[in-house]
Amino acid sequence: MEPITQLRSRTVVMPSTNIDTDQIIPARFLTTTTREGLGKALFADWRYDAAGNPRPDFILNRPEAAGCQALVAGRNVGCGSSREHAPWALIDYGFRAVISTEIADIFRNNSLKNGLLPVTVDEETHAWLLAHPGTEIAIDLETCTVALADGREVSFPLEPFARYCLMNGVDELGFLLSRKEDIEHYERTHAK
């Protein structure tokens, strides 16, 4: 995983609440055995019509969405399935951050493990972001803040260990493997 400290990007806004992982990546695309190439299928049922043509009114098909790395979504984004294909698809498409007032647990975990920043902001900031699609934001992991174009800086919570891993490109598996002795000790002392 590439270390990440800062992200500066314009935003794409999808105001729907409860955007579930079946919307982010429908199940029929889950029969893959790799992580790559899922960006094409991101939001497939909203993005393409029955014939597979892009729907011109869907936000990701509009020119202003090109190059945006931050997705501002309605409350409770990522609810539903545990499929890690959801953050994989978002990342493969080009997103590096998802911003909402509430981010579902498993999706948040999966995102952190892939370097997709889950940013939970307060209602007021969220409302402002929803009202200003395409605005330029700067996310800073050093300070755990989002800087908005109107000059405000709002902080967001981030689990300290996840933050450390993101900023240093540390992979958690390596960390767990380094605690092998603790695990062996646990196994010895907790008979089946």
Partner: peptide, 29 residues
């Protein structure tokens, strides 16, 4: 995500993503 089903037995059962599946395969943790 529907691993929560097993909680009916008084188990602590929850869904994980694929990266975590790898963690459990490799470390049981």
């Amino acid at each position: 995500s529907h691993t929560s089903t097993h909680g009916a037995f008084g188990a602590l059962a929850f869904g994980i993503g694929t990266t975590e599946v790898g963690h459990v395969l490799a470390t049981q943790c």
